[in-house]
Amino acid sequence: MNLQQLIGIKLPIIQAPMAGIAGSELVVAVCNAGGLGSLPCAMLSLDTLRSELQIIREQTSHPFNVNFFCNSEPSPNVEQDNKWRDIVSPYYDELGINRPSAITSPSSTAISWEAIEILAEFEPPVVSFHFGLPSSDMLNKIRSWGAKILSSATTVEEARWLEKKGVDAIIAQGLEAGGHRGMFLSDDIHTQLGTLSLVRQIVKAIDIPVIAAGGIADAHCVTAAMSLGAAGTQIGTAYLLCPEAKTSNLYRTALKSEAATTTAVTNVFSGRPARAIINRLVRELGPINENTPDFPLAGSAIAPLRSKAESQGSSDFTSLWAGQNVSGCKEIPAALLTQSFVSSEDED
């Protein structure tokens, strides 16, 4: 079964749910172009979640996706928190801001029953997850309105686990992908595979549709993924320069620079491995730092640095999430970009 048959869309394209970047405007544009727009919900308040869903329902009649994190709540660790604040303190001194007295509550949160109750009001046709799955009770509630359930796998083992849990399709997230790794059965970064290897192995290992993600930037990449047995593709980085994306001017400038051709999997922004453009913080504290607090607490110590630096025109402390292939980033409407992924006239 291909992605179009599974979800009821025209094109085998899912716009990746990029937190802080993708809002209702981008979702609607992709949906109305024939793809599956995805609303990232991990950083949304309940009120914002409801208002975004209302806009999407009003502006498109096509299927759309809502995406949530399934991370466990971090355990308090005062010693670890103090060590991390000591490590970043020189940057506070440099920028002339006060050192935080404690690691604050996370800005990214896992799915909750309150959020599910809001979803039930709008009955989104697709609900996807990162970092595993929520409880079986939550999944049953989501299934009650007929939603298809997708989740990310970064290894064959994770794909088999998800299949046993009854998901409708698996997003095979290759190491090339931007943003957070969806890994959840292991925190060993050495288990991570590139998209080509991962997709083919998962296709052979399971009996449900597989969606390829990571390094897919144009129609040639989509064709290659489908030739490996993928039922469809999920694309994120290529949308970052679209006018409908909420990408900041500093972020856009970085994406259009030579720096965007060099990315790294780093944990210094959040405490979890994620692929980003290499900037000052990644170079000086990472890419992987063993002293970061558990996800997503590490980010609270970085947030004031990011805010201050950005006010001065610097992205030294900004999480510039991007995949390894930024060649597909185009400053064109998201609808045109979505349609270009299946165009036979795609440029070399």
Rank of each mutant, 00 (worst) to 15 (best):
V326D: 08
T233W: 00
E157R: 12
H190V: 12
I208K: 09
E331S: 13
A322L: 03
K256R: 13
V88Q: 02
S197K: 15
A213Y: 10
E58Q: 13
Q312F: 08
T318L: 09
L228M: 12
L6M: 02
Q80W: 10
K246T: 05
G215H: 06
L255F: 08
S89E: 14
C329E: 06
G182F: 04
M226I: 14
K256E: 11
H130R: 06
K148I: 03
G182P: 01
D187E: 12
W84A: 10
N279D: 09
W84P: 04
T338V: 10
G215C: 10
K141N: 02
I21P: 01
G166V: 09
S24I: 01
C70W: 14
V326P: 05
Q173G: 02
G179Y: 00
T262Q: 15
K141G: 08
N267P: 13
A33L: 06
S128N: 05
A147L: 09
K330G: 08
L305W: 05
L46N: 15
A219M: 09
G8Q: 07
L36F: 12
A217S: 10
I288Q: 14
Q80T: 14
N82E: 13
I208S: 02
E258D: 15
I14R: 02
Q4H: 02
R306S: 04
S105G: 13
L241G: 02
G34F: 11
R275V: 06
P40Q: 05
W145A: 12
L46W: 09
K148M: 07
A159S: 07
R50K: 14
M226V: 09
G20R: 04
L36N: 02
P134H: 02
V126G: 05
G286H: 01
L241E: 03
N77E: 06
G179D: 10
M18T: 08
S319D: 03
W113N: 05
Q173N: 07
G232C: 10
Y251C: 05
L250I: 11
A230F: 00
I278L: 14
A301G: 13
C31R: 07
L46K: 14
A259E: 14
R272Q: 05
I235V: 13
T195E: 07
G286S: 00
Q339R: 12
G132S: 11
A177N: 06
N71T: 13
S101C: 13
T292L: 11
A213C: 08
I211K: 01
A159M: 12
H180Y: 14
S197P: 03
A238P: 07
L196V: 14
Y91H: 05
A177R: 03
D188W: 13
K256D: 02
W113R: 11
I149Q: 00
A260G: 12
P124W: 06
V326Q: 01
S136G: 07
S151H: 06
V66H: 05
A153T: 09
L240R: 02
H220D: 03
T223F: 12
T191G: 11
L175W: 10
G96V: 10
S128G: 07
N140D: 10
G299M: 04
D218W: 00
I208P: 05
G179Q: 06
P76C: 06
R57W: 00
N32Q: 13
D294L: 10
G20K: 04
T247E: 01
V265D: 14
N67F: 09
L228K: 03
P209W: 01
L228F: 01
S75K: 15
S270E: 11
V66D: 00
S89Q: 15
R57Y: 02
G299P: 06
L241Y: 00
N279P: 04
A259K: 06
I278E: 11
E163T: 08
